[in-house]
Write a protein that binds this DNA or RNA. Structure first.
Ligand code: NAD
Ligand code: NAD
Lengths: 206, 206
DNA sequence: TTCAAAGTGTTAATAAAATAACACTGTTTA
DNA sequence: TAAACAGTGTTATTTTATTAACACTTTGAA
């Protein structure tokens, strides 16, 4: 299958999450406009996204919720699952880890890295924390492909580079420092301060 | 001034942050391509964004860093500043609060709201935590315009509605539940799980 | 059984964002 | 002083994302 637009992937993730709740509430079928309403988007967008992943409904009853959840899974999950490491298990790293742990069967946070002697070699928020020096070893051993970067900005670049050298293939960067990665590594950046400033701007402008 | 595109506002926030570092490193002038390099975008994009805010350089030395920082401030900050409340001061709320506190002179987190008796009426991560029942009162009294929503998903909607009734004009929603807000309220949503799943998808697809 | 209603998949049109192109202005240097 | 250069501001083009339009299918009521 051709690579999907990033925006579509984001929405698919949202569809699945909302569908799980919808299914749990005892509903087995859903119309495009209903799914759209759950996410506050338009029905056309839903249908277009589903078209892109080649999913078709049994007509007139809407989409089979369970089937659709599974289909989205085959598109966005990898069959064997992927392992994740949190680099920098401070306030934010800990919050994310304890929140995410167990939420997705195909995505597991299996290790944390830190350089604080107080944290190293202990289990924090349910995952073992290793010293950064062992990063290469552990990333290989545990087959970790994704890194969540939550260390102080000053160390973001060198540590990210080290993670990439160790074999990381995707980074979600929460630091305020823009990273530069080779083409074979996928980078997603989220800057919370920017989000807050953006809200402030649009509140001001009305 | 005409309202700027959201994407431009996001970049302006990024420009300013990087310029502050650049200035601190002792540089007083910067070319568009240098600023672009800091953020890993193109020089055209920088120039286009600056065009939109009507900023012009004294030619040939590049942009005056200090002046540009100030100009961006006049665009994205409100003169009198804005007050922020964190709703739900759990793991994530605490991480954000302690991180953000004092970072922006025009944006202050001045209150937290929670319903946990253990937290209420105490100072957490540097801000006073009030019971949710007092939300309307405090939001008015402290002139709070922005809410960071970090409560469990089940309560996201009713509590957001209450905040809006109390006078909140902008929400940054970190819960996994899509919100619906009136037109005069600005809503920004960030879904961390979606971000992680997106990284996983693009790692899988290469 | 036929006709209206509701919902889907897809193609076409529109809008938004990023990129390219380029004329213009100072700056350097020959 | 003139010619080459570097960098800017702006308009034009391309690309991407969203929205609209519509023909088709199923359903159910008349
Ligand atoms: N806390 C937030 O809500 C928030 C919001 C936006 C951005 N951020 C960014 O996330 C990052 C972390 O924020 P935080 O609040 O969790 O900070 P924190 O200080 O609580 O955590 C940082 C962690 O990184 C570890 N660390 C420091 N240097 C390291 C190194 N060289 N190698 C490995 N580990 C190292 C520290 O021991 C600590 O555990 C920062 O870059 C910050 O800009 C945080
Ligand atoms: N922790 C993360 O990194 C993370 C990541 C993505 C999304 N989220 C979302 O952020 C939210 C909070 O996550 P968390 O990990 O901080 O959870 P948490 O349980 O640590 O914190 C939730 C806080 O909200 C308070 N609360 C509960 N009900 C309330 C109510 N009705 N009114 C006011 N306060 C109430 C609780 O007392 C607690 O302090 C969740 O919706 C979660 O989906 C968290």
């Amino acid at each position: 299958m051709k690579k999907l637009p990033g925006k579509t992937v984001e929405r698919l993730s949202g569809y699945r999450r909302n569908l799980l709740g919808y299914l749990a509430a005892g509903n087995n079928y859903i119309y495009s406009h209903e799914l759209a309403a759950l996410l506050h988007i338009t029905a056309v967008q839903v249908r277009r996204d589903l078209m892109l992943i080649g999913y078709s409904s049994v007509q007139k009853k809407g989409y089979d919720v369970k089937e659709l959840i599974d289909t989205i899974g085959t598109i966005i999950d990898s069959e064997q699952g992927q392992n994740i490491a949190v680099i920098g298990i401070g306030n934010l790293g800990r919050a994310i880890t304890s929140y995410f742990k167990g939420k997705r069967s195909k995505l597991n946070i299996v290790a944390a890295f830190d350089n604080d002697p107080q944290k190293v070699n202990r289990v924090i928020a349910g995952v073992r924390c290793y010293p950064v020096e062992k990063m290469e070893h552990i990333i290989n051993e545990q087959n970790i492909t994704i890194a969540l970067l939550t260390i102080p900005p000053d160390f973001a670049r060198p540590v990210a580079d080290a993670a990439i050298r160790a074999g990381i293939k995707g980074i979600l960067n929460f630091t305020t420092v823009p990273l530069n990665v080779p083409l074979n590594v996928y980078l997603e950046e989220y800057d919370m301060i920017t989000s807050i400033e953006k809200v402030a701007y649009f509140v001001k402008e009305g």
